[in-house]
Each structure stands twice: as C-alpha cells, then as structure tokens.
Nucleic acid binder design. Structure first.
Lengths: 214, 214
DNA sequence: ACTTAGCGGAGCGATTCGCTCCGCTCTGCA
DNA sequence: TGCAGAGCGGAGCGAATCGCTCCGCTAAGT
C-alpha cells in the first residue's frame, strides 16, 4: 500500500546493487557519491538508510554470505552431486562475490557475519564430499581450492574494464566469453588429469583475511 | 664501470617492478609516491627518469608486450605443442600481465606498442594452431579464449589482498594455492569435455580496449 | 679540497574523499 | 483543495590525497 515505503525499499535494493557494480569497477576507492549516482539517488538518501559507508559495506557482505549459503543449500538439494556443486559455484560467481574482495580487511566483521561464514564452510565441505564420493570431482581438489576458484572467477577483468569505459555495447559479448572461461575452469575440476602441484592449501588463507588490520 | 650509471639502472629496474607490485595492490589509484617508496627511491628520482606518470606506465606496458612476445617465441621453440602453449601461458601469468589491466584506457597507445601487440596476436595464433593440430588442445577453444584466460588468471585476489594487509608470512602458501588454480584451468583446456557454451568470442573484445577514452 | 651530478622528500595547488545540512517536492490527511 | 511535514537531491565542508616541482644536501670525480 504505502507508496513511501515501497519507494524506500526499491531505493535500498538499487543502492546495494549499485554498490556491487561500483565496487567491481572502481575497486577499493569506490566512493559513496559514485554509488549513490549509479543507484539514481542522492547521497543524502544513502546516508539516511546507512549511517556510514562501512555500514553499507557490512550489509553487502552479509547479503553475500547469505547468498552463498542459500546457493549451497540449493546445490545440496540437487540429486546430482556434480550438477549441485557446479550450480553452486556458478551462482556464487554470478552474484558478484568477487567484487567484495577490495573491501576485505577494511570493515569490521560482526559476529553474525562470522557465524554465517562458518555455516557456509560446512555446506561447501559437504558439497565437495558428495562430489568426491560419486567420483565426479577429481580427488586432489579440496573445498578450499573451490573457494579460491570462486574468488578468482568472481571478478571479470574484461567486463569490469568495458563497463568502466562505458562500452555497454560489448558487454553481452564479454559476458558470453566469461561464461566460456568458467566452463573451462569447471572442466578442469573433473577427474582424469595429472595430480595438482604442491600440497593442498590450508584454511589459514581464509582465517583472519576478513578481520580489520589493526 | 661508472657507479653512478649502475645505480641509476638498478633504480630504474626497481621502479618498474615496484610499479607492477603497487598496481597489483592498489589498482587504478596507484600513486607515484607509493611506487617510489616501494622502490626505495624518492619521487624526485622517479620524475628524473620519467617525465610523467603516464610515461612510466607506457614503459611498463611496452615491457609487458615484449615479455609476451618473447614467451610466445620460447613456446614455439618447444617441440611439444602442449608444453609450449602452457609454458607461454604460465610465463605471462607469472610476469604479472594482469596488473596492467587497471591502467588500460588511461594511457596513450604508441605506434610501437600496437605493433608489438599485433605481433603477439600472430604468435599466439600459431601456438594455438599447433596445439590444435596435435590434438593437445580442445578444438572449441580459440586464441582469444586463451588471451582472456591469461588476463583472468593474471591477477590473484588472494595474493594481492594478503600483500595489502602485510601478511607476508602467508604469501608462499597463497602462491602455491594460486598455482593449483592455474593447473586446474589449464587442465580444462584439454580435449574430452562437453562443448563450450556460446559462440567463440570475436576480437572486438580486444580492439580498442587499450585506446584512450575521449 | 672543490665542483657538481644526482638524490630524497617537503610542499604546492588541484582534486577527491566521507559526510552534513538545507531547501524543495510531493505525499497523505483533513 | 489546502496544509503540514516526511523524505528527497545535491551543494558544500574540512580533511586527505593526488601528480608534480624544487631545493638543500650528500658523496662521487678530478
């Protein structure tokens, strides 16, 4: 009913998506002004909804974690272990998880966030375990390998740059090219290849990476 | 002999490597002050060697193109088409080609640069053609797919972020984890997988991407 | 011992940052 | 229809940072 509240909610969603886009384009120096402009609202409206830039980014991180967990649960609901795992990976990549990387270490991690992060780790472990058991996933790949792969593919240099240059005409082609790269990487997760180099990465690469530098 | 000149040359090399590192960490807003500091010289010395920030970045781009071409020629010299192609890809990734992405579109492209770029395209075409002919490379992968793959893997979100946070203790582990991701992606280039989605990307994704936005 | 090439970094004006605050619009109720 | 005020956009604030200049000083060369 209330038009006022509807409008505010639309603005909020637009702000969050704009923040993701601008973060992808401008990286660490994404400015509030750019985010507000991209969302089509004034900075004043942004600051009524979020007291501070950090609060906006915390909200963004929380939503990302929630999406990760929902996608993982959907993947586990798939009877096919391989389709479940790859569906999860693709969903995370397309959601734009990667664009949050530049703000890691710049925002305070709330207890709610780290709880959801732990839950996400468990879900991914289970996805990987299932795919190992069914023989669909090469044996020497760990859950952390998969996490890092999502992070690596979560940003697209080509798409980001074209967007920054305003070449919107080329974006569909770039998105299609990107999908091919993702398919290539996922094919590399299949069994039947030479063993991976080095030893499996430990989770110390994730622990503490999101905490604020003192 | 001349100690003066030796020192200057060492400074120059340190500047170029520092520029690569800082670009990887700070992206588009890498500052001259940060580059000079990382190289262990004053900004004054940087500006005696390069009249402007753009000139430094042009030099950096030129060296990257030259490295690309040398690596491609080395790859072609390898009697094994697959080893030649993957050696080329790995060499480009490790050289840090990816760190130049943020400055694309911000510097003027000299005639020398575009000539070397054309030469690089030809060399890569030949590498891909050889690998196709020997059956080592999946048939639906094009040279542009390989270029985009190099660009995608040319930056490491994990390594960049750990460096920014000063967690140098974790860098070796991150580098090893990165090498595993590269191996996975290269395995995905092998034959024997489902066809890639979409149609092969055209070279319009590269044409003009390096020209200055007007 | 004297000259001077070559260096580091303080500091300039311009720009951009996160954020505040205010005038205006346009909704919702009488 | 008229009016009160909720909610908006964006000008503008002080601080920070930018690319770049310039100068005092160190130390190499004669």
């Amino acid at each position: 009913m209330s038009t006022r509240r509807d409008r505010a909610e639309r603005n909020d969603r637009a702000l969050l998506q704009a923040a993701r886009d601008v973060l992808a384009e401008d990286g660490a120096h994404a400015s509030v002004a750019a985010i507000a402009a991209r969302a089509g609202v004034g900075v004043g409206s942004l600051y009524r909804r979020y007291q501070t830039k950090e609060e906006l980014f915390q909200r963004l991180s929380l939503l990302s974690l929630e999406h990760w967990n929902e996608a993982a649960e959907q993947g586990l609901a798939d009877p096919d272990p391989w389709a479940g795992l790859t569906g999860f990976v693709r969903s995370c990549i397309e959601f734009g998880q990667g664009s949050l990387a530049p703000i890691a270490g710049t925002i305070e991690v709330t207890e709610e966030m780290s709880a959801k992060s732990r839950r996400g780790d468990e879900l991914l472990d289970e996805l990987v375990r299932r795919a190992h058991a069914s023989g669909d996933l090469r044996a020497d790949v760990t859950a952390i390998d998969v996490s890092l792969l999502i992070e690596q593919l979560g940003r697209s240099p080509v798409v980001d740059q074209l967007r920054k240059q305003g070449r919107d005409d080329l974006l569909p082609a770039a998105a299609e090219a990107r999908r091919r790269l993702i398919a290539i990487a996922l094919d590399g997760l299949r069994p039947g290849h030479d063993p991976l180099p080095g030893s499996p990465p430990g989770d110390e690469l994730f622990t503490g990476r999101w905490s604020v530098a003192e």
